[in-house]
Nucleic acid binder design. Structure first.
Lengths: 189, 189
DNA sequence: TGAAAATCTAAACATTTGTTAACGCTTTAA
DNA sequence: TTAAAGCGTTAACAAATGTTTAGATTTTCA
């Protein structure tokens, strides 16, 4: 629990007692490569914190095709946070792309944190703000940058992604076909 | 200040004294149609709450073209929130599309609220979560719905938008050209 | 280890979307 | 009140991106 402790400590002031209590409600869980952490249609009951490995978030469109909408890396929180907040059935699938070791924070822990931690709401605010900024940047890029430009700068958001994720998932994340990404790479030379 | 009072009351528990103090730091400001509320390049120093009117958020790409990335309606908070949080020069322009009456919340008020209000951080968390959900939905739609489908459902997000905003700005928001939107509408019949 | 699955690239063709130019209509503002 | 600006549509053409099919290579896992 060393990693999550450090991440939280960097965001809020929290006493050793508070931290001990908070983490006593959490537990470690491991997933094999390709395993599903969270299925669509189920109301999310937990948030994951990644100690090791990489997780992709994907959604299926009405035609049944998969779209990779996000990658989550080490030391990040991940969930279908939108549905988690709204107590709604999840739209997304969370899948381990490598063997994953993560900390599971059940919903009851989050709620306990908001109630009992002095800076619980602040922690929630900072995390929501963090992902808001990430999304804002994404949406902005969608308007002002071409797929090629977005491809060329993807490592700024996901360092080392090219060595950890198949190219066709990156294409999917960029909103283009793998064939088209192949073409764009060729142009780059 | 009746509207903002109601919106805040619906989000958190706040005493009459707290509310009085909070709003005493805020003030009403009016903008004419087409007037700019906030310019790019300036670190945002305030958040606006719209009593009346409609505001569009736009960004200029490197080629100098405008992209409408958001509309803000009555009873909503609006700012370049990402840059506001990060204390960075704004990327966006905020422009009144109608005569606007709004409440201005200076940064000092927000910071005061986080320090002094019992549920200040909770209010911040709920607002950040609200916009996170909005953005998540947008990003999701980008992957699984066509421009035409997004056009057909735009009133779910912006009620009455067609009577308040020129069509070419809606096209811009959807990420397509006005000519193309015109074509899509024709197909709809 | 070896067969099956996954991955990347390529070419040919199809579809979608953008660009330019033109026209009529409405709104704006001097 | 009237000239100018803004708006929505259309057509013809251009560019970007998707689809299908195929083949070569690498990875997976039984």
């Amino acid at each position: 629990m060393e990693q999550i402790r450090n991440v939280i400590k960097n965001m809020i002031n929290i006493s050793d007692d508070e931290m001990k209590n908070l983490l006593s409600f959490c537990f470690i869980k491991k997933f094999k490569k390709k395993e599903i952490l969270s299925h669509p249609g189920v109301i999310p009951s937990e948030i994951f914190f990644i100690n090791e490995g990489i997780i992709r978030v994907l959604v299926n469109d009405p035609a049944g095709d998969e779209h990779t909408i996000h990658f989550a890396l080490e030391n990040q929180f991940i969930a279908d946070y939108s549905c988690f907040i709204q107590h709604q059935p999840s739209l997304y699938t969370l899948q381990a792309l490598e063997a994953v070791i993560c900390v599971v924070m059940p919903r009851s822990v989050i709620e306990w944190g908001y109630r009992e931690l002095k800076q619980g709401d602040k922690l929630g605010r900072l995390i929501a703000e963090f992902y808001f900024i990430y999304q804002d940047n994404r949406i902005n890029n969608q308007y002002i940058r071409s797929p090629k430009e977005r491809y060329n700068s993807i490592t700024q958001v996901f360092p080392n992604i090219h060595n950890r994720v198949p190219q066709h998932m990156i294409a999917s994340y960029l909103g283009i076909t793998p064939i088209h990404l192949s073409r764009l790479k060729k142009e780059n030379d």
